[in-house]
Amino acid sequence: MIRKQDIGALFLRVFLGAAFFIHGLAKFQGGIGNTAGFFESLGLPGFAAYVVATIELVGGLAVLLGLGTRVISFLFAVILAGAMVKVKFAAGFLGNDQMPGYEIDMALLIISVYFVIAGSSLFALDRLFFRSKAE
């Protein structure tokens, strides 16, 4: 039996996965070297841009498909927390004339934490590989 909560979680999972996939793709399409330079300007190692972009791209696709949702959502939460602290907090919740605020990052962080805690199994590949004894 499909519950309303499972349908809601599916919508959130698809959105989260798609959002991260698109952000990761944009980093590679826009020139990952530019992103690495931006990371270095923040005092972060440039190679971290490759790690983040790969997690966003591959992890976004995996979450979209429901594969490793809890683990990848934890990685998303770490990335979002880092982005908020290093970049977005200075602009405030709603942003300023130079950059957007951290309201979207906070929403994505909360969705990610939800999946770390609750997971999402409706139409998820994880169900094929990790069937619980209760099913």
Rank of each mutant, 00 (worst) to 15 (best):
A26P: 04
L108N: 00
G37D: 14
F115D: 08
Y102L: 08
I104Q: 00
Y114H: 10
F93R: 12
G95T: 12
A118E: 12
V51M: 11
S120L: 03
E103W: 04
R70P: 12
I7Q: 07
L108R: 02
A19H: 07
Q29F: 10
V116N: 01
A107Q: 01
V63C: 05
D6I: 02
F93P: 11
A124D: 08
G30K: 09
L80R: 07
A9D: 10
D97G: 02
G95L: 13
A107C: 00
L16M: 12
L12P: 02
I117G: 04
G59Q: 06
P100R: 12
K133I: 05
Y102P: 09
F74N: 08
V52G: 02
L25C: 06
G101E: 12
V63D: 10
P45M: 05
L109W: 01
A81R: 01
Q5W: 02
F76N: 11
G31Q: 03
F28M: 06
F21R: 11
E40Q: 13
V58E: 02
L61P: 06
A83C: 10
I79T: 15
N96I: 14
A91I: 09
A49H: 09
K27Q: 13
F129N: 04
V85I: 15
L75N: 10
V71M: 14
G119Q: 10
G37S: 04
F11Y: 13
G31N: 11
K88W: 03
F20Y: 09
L61G: 13
R3N: 02
I104T: 00
L125F: 14
G68E: 03
L75F: 15
F15P: 08
G66S: 12
F47Y: 15
D126Q: 07
V87H: 02
V58P: 01
F39N: 06
I7P: 05
V63W: 09
G17C: 10
G92P: 14
I79L: 03
G92L: 13
G8C: 06
A53H: 06
K27M: 12
V71T: 06
N34V: 09
G82R: 00
L61M: 14
L10T: 12
S121N: 12
R131Y: 04
L16E: 11
V78M: 03
G37F: 09
G66I: 13
